[in-house]
Design a protein around this nucleic acid. Sequence first.
DNA 1: AGGCAATCTAGTCACTGTCAAGATGCTGGG
DNA 2: CCCAGCATCTTGACAGTGACTAGATTGCCT
Lengths: 192, 192
Amino acid sequence: MTTGRAYHHGDLRRTVLTAALDVITTEGPAALSLRDLARRAGVSHAAPAHHFGDRAGLLTAIATEGYGLLAAALGETGDLRDLGVRYVRFATSHPAHFQTMFRPELLRPDAPELLAARERTRSRLRTAVEGYGEDPAIGFMAAWSLAHGFATLLLSRNLDDPLDGRDPEEAFRALTGEMFRATGSPPRRTGR
Amino acid sequence: MTTGRAYHHGDLRRTVLTAALDVITTEGPAALSLRDLARRAGVSHAAPAHHFGDRAGLLTAIATEGYGLLAAALGETGDLRDLGVRYVRFATSHPAHFQTMFRPELLRPDAPELLAARERTRSRLRTAVEGYGEDPAIGFMAAWSLAHGFATLLLSRNLDDPLDGRDPEEAFRALTGEMFRATGSPPRRTGR
DNA sequence: AGGCAATCTAGTCACTGTCAAGATGCTGGG
DNA sequence: CCCAGCATCTTGACAGTGACTAGATTGCCT
């Protein structure tokens, strides 16, 4: 019944994933209901569990995918400021992934695919920041904190007033301009 | 039964609140169960609802209290860097409040006490940052993003590696030192 | 053609939030 | 002093949820 073919939905895994992203985008990861996702996909209430195990498994899959997408979104820029802008852009264009990635209490903490994807993305960030300040670890934390804080406040609708209609990416660019103005090595511009 | 006096627990509201803070600290706001809190307080399953209405009401109360505590924790410093350190210190010493404050999807979005407390704290931040950069709104977002990002990454256990045993507050101080080094007006030191 | 594993269904259980109706104890006005 | 009213708490019920089990269906591989 439901969609046509009774058994073997075809691509249930992907269908559930995108439905989940929809829900998370509008109502947050806490509002996720496996049964609701099953209804949306037109399958029985226990079907999603077969693909993801349980709720934490589904969210872990989303987070893992998110780290992959983030790594791709960051690209190969050598410009630190561009890197930050891309980080912010990823958060606004993939809010569900972004939110889920930073809610460890909802994930399987030791899922190997997740750990691998996260480490790959993190080392990408780390090497990109290298050579900008004196202490690489401090510089890494500084750059990440700035971009992450901006993205987080943006998604939680805490920057609406100060932005006042401005484009978030442009605001972030201005913001980094003000802060990084005279650090050790100025960012070399790459063609974006 | 349970604790001695049958009816009229005495301070159920506060008891439930602190139990909730306990749970949120270790397992996050999503793991909160009103029935579990009732059990911990030795009270019937529907008793908490009388004080908070529903789950969102409880979390809204926590967030409201959090904004008050944050305003108090920020104090009256004129030193921008100290202000950031205090922001980070608040996040680490009141993790449950901090996390709840920035999860709007779990809160009553238009609770007047919440809006008032938030606006009071936010304007405190805004005026503190005023006069540091060129564009006040940009400076406000920059300072807040940096402190908030650091605090958020810290609480989600994303900075464990780069910190490598260092004291978070000291790391944040070093971090701001590197970033703000040559902005418009250097922070004037106040006796802390 | 036949079996096998992947996929999905159906049924169940304990748990949760929320609501309604009733019980209990405090408090202040006569 | 007492009793009416009110805040507080209990009890019971209902729908929705995640998770588990056993069984049905289907595509694939040899």
